[in-house]
Amino acid sequence: MAELHGWLVYKQKDAEVNRGFIMMLTEAAAAINLSLQLIYEEDLSIGISGGLAAIQHPIYDSRNLDFVLMRTINQLLTKQFEAAGIRCFNSSSVASLCNDKAQSYQYVSRLGIEMLDSWFITSRTFNPEKIPFCRFPMVLKQSDGRGGKEVYLVHSTEEIEEILMQYPHKQFVLQQFAEQPGKDLRVFVLGGEIIGAVMRTSATSFKANYTLGGKVAPYVLFPEEAEIVHRISAPLKADFIGIDFLLNSSGQLVFNEIEDVVGCRSLYSTTDVDAAALYMGHIKKTLKKG
């Protein structure tokens, strides 16, 4: 019988395209005597019952849970598990910061790390006359977007306004264009330790995401680059995150964003690092300490 019991929570549509990683995680869990059950977010009902946080699933009982591995972005759900006394990987505080680009920039701005000038705007607050660096082209991205799918290269004020009007209730980041577009570095950090890094490049787009067709290659960090990564990750105390950097004209790192539900395809395709096994090992070690 497994020592500890956990749920692996995905949106159903995301689980369909991540079957390989799900299998790796469940097999890695079983290998160290952990039980890990795939749960679809859509099957969960949450609320307050008898004054306590309640989580209902049509089949499985949340009262037997020791941990939850969150592979979906749902702040309320993560907080519900935590309110019920269940440890989440990552925590709601980490997820909140990482899944909001504006909050991430606010956080990193206090660390003395190079960043692109950025402005936080909505359809209601956008005023180009009040943005000192409004030089085109620029990058416009939704604060809560991920995977490069809500990122736009804009060439005029009219383009910005048109996109903003399509999403009147969304927060956006308007940002300077990178000095080396179509190239970025992703660093994987697990339990505060760097477990790998990949350089992503695209010859056809300013976005280098692997899932959008970018090419990837393994990358070995220089000591000064690793130090920048640790300055970002250490105060967060995150379980597993990806930190993305752009490059300036001199090839130095420029902070871009932090991924909470970090994808591992690029790491598996370029290295021998078994992120699933390392992650489950970290979870067991953390729970044993607690």
Results as ranks from 00 to 15, higher is better:
3 E>K: 13
3 E>W: 03
4 L>K: 10
5 H>Q: 12
8 L>A: 12
11 K>C: 00
13 K>Y: 11
17 V>I: 06
18 N>H: 08
20 G>C: 13
20 G>V: 14
20 G>R: 01
30 A>D: 03
30 A>H: 05
37 Q>F: 05
40 Y>G: 00
43 D>Q: 15
45 S>L: 15
46 I>E: 12
47 G>D: 11
55 I>Q: 12
59 I>W: 14
60 Y>A: 11
60 Y>C: 10
61 D>T: 00
63 R>Y: 00
64 N>P: 12
88 C>D: 05
89 F>S: 03
90 N>W: 03
93 S>N: 15
94 V>E: 15
98 C>D: 03
100 D>V: 15
101 K>W: 06
101 K>A: 06
105 Y>S: 09
107 Y>T: 04
111 L>Y: 13
113 I>L: 11
119 W>E: 08
121 I>D: 09
126 F>C: 09
129 E>Q: 12
131 I>G: 02
131 I>C: 03
134 C>T: 13
136 F>M: 06
136 F>Q: 06
141 K>L: 00
142 Q>K: 14
148 G>V: 15
148 G>E: 12
150 E>C: 14
155 H>G: 14
160 I>D: 01
161 E>L: 12
165 M>C: 15
170 K>Q: 13
186 R>M: 10
186 R>H: 02
188 F>H: 01
188 F>G: 02
190 L>R: 01
193 E>A: 11
194 I>Y: 01
196 G>W: 08
198 V>F: 05
199 M>I: 13
200 R>K: 13
202 S>T: 05
207 K>G: 03
208 A>N: 10
208 A>C: 15
211 T>Q: 06
218 P>M: 04
218 P>H: 00
225 E>Q: 07
225 E>R: 02
226 A>I: 04
228 I>Y: 08
229 V>D: 09
232 I>E: 00
234 A>D: 06
242 G>E: 05
243 I>R: 02
260 D>Y: 04
261 V>G: 10
266 S>M: 10
268 Y>G: 03
272 D>A: 05
273 V>G: 04
280 M>C: 08
282 H>N: 14
283 I>W: 04
287 L>M: 06
290 G>C: 11
